[in-house]
Nucleic acid binder design. Structure first.
Ligand SMILES: [Zn+2]
Ligand SMILES: [Zn+2]
Ligand SMILES: [Zn+2]
Ligand SMILES: [Zn+2]
Lengths: 161, 161
DNA sequence: AGCCAATGCGTTATGAAATAACATAACCTG
DNA sequence: CAGGTTATGTTATTTCATAACGCATTGGCT
């Protein structure tokens, strides 16, 4: 990300082979349990996210969509992303206009990210908002979703800087 | 925002008259203290943000820029927004692609928002991240900025729903 | 004053991100 | 297999943001 970053960019290497197949199969069975359909475009976009080494832009997904090099049409990918987000298989990172596969084991969670401004990796973590929003809820707010994105330097890039 | 919201949309009424002039003057003198220049386009965009009842989109600012109805050119407004953000006079709300004037008194702070999905207001509050990021910093991260945006219903809209 | 570097602005054009709208196809379920 | 629902294909458009370049203004320096 930073022009002066020469890291291998694989702080979060993408899945391949058996690991990839296994992750997709897990999503598949999760869908079946809730009568949701992991259709070909949805599966394909999930694969692309899982294979990637970091956050993927929507138009990167569009370009990479066809195994033969044929790009997808934008709505194909945006619809798949909407589905994957709804099911919790992927998250959108607002401050990057980019998407990542969910890295957390648990089923339901509020996603939060530590984003490295040097190498571009985005590490998901489980935030604890209880103290924050006790006050908000006490003031009458009904909080539904929360976006928390911290930006800075990951350990590796911090050392080099 | 919500199609079923019939509120007056003035949960955060914009400034006018003396209050507006005073807010702009405060920004002016803050700039002078740090040798920054509140030039005409920057002042104009700040005015528009302060006058607004809620978050403003960049192209709303562009359209409203000229007192005679003439729109600004996009770079004019985006440059002004960059400046206002840098000085802490305005914040970008990532999940809305929109901008608000800073409502906090203190000089330096990490902005956070409670966004009502019904009436569209965005209330700024001062978050306390200390517990969250003690862990992150301990793990070697150097956190520089944080985006925290909570979405839900404000007290007024919650009652109506 | 005259010069210079730095900063900001005006303008044109383009790039990037996301969605609208509508037709067709696949899938349940009774 | 009929009919409602969900998903996809396709075309076009809208929305959001920046690149690039030349000119103007500012403020320090000699
Ligand atoms: Zn997750
Ligand atoms: Zn890094
Ligand atoms: Zn603020
Ligand atoms: Zn509201």
């Amino acid at each position: 990300m930073g022009v002066d970053c020469h890291h291998t960019e694989s702080a979060q290497p993408g899945l391949e082979g058996a690991a990839l197949a296994s992750a997709v199969a897990a999503a598949q069975s999760k869908c079946e349990r809730t009568r949701e359909r992991l259709t070909p475009p949805r599966r394909r976009v999930l694969e692309l996210l899982l294979e990637a080494d970091g956050p993927m832009k929507a138009y990167d997904l569009i370009a990479a969509y066809g195994q033969d090099g044929e790009p997808a049409k934008p709505p194909t990918v945006y619809r798949a992303l909407e589905f994957l987000e709804r099911l919790g298989f992927a998250h959108r990172i607002e401050s990057l206009n980019a998407y990542v596969p969910c890295r957390m084991e648990g089923t339901s969670h509020r996603a939060a990210f530590l984003i490295c401004e040097c190498c571009g990796t985005a590490e998901e973590f489980e935030p604890d908002f209880s103290p924050q929003f006790a006050a908000a809820e006490a003031a009458g707010y009904a909080v539904r979703t929360v976006t928390l994105e911290a930006r800075g330097l990951c350990p590796a890039c911090k050392v080099e800087a």
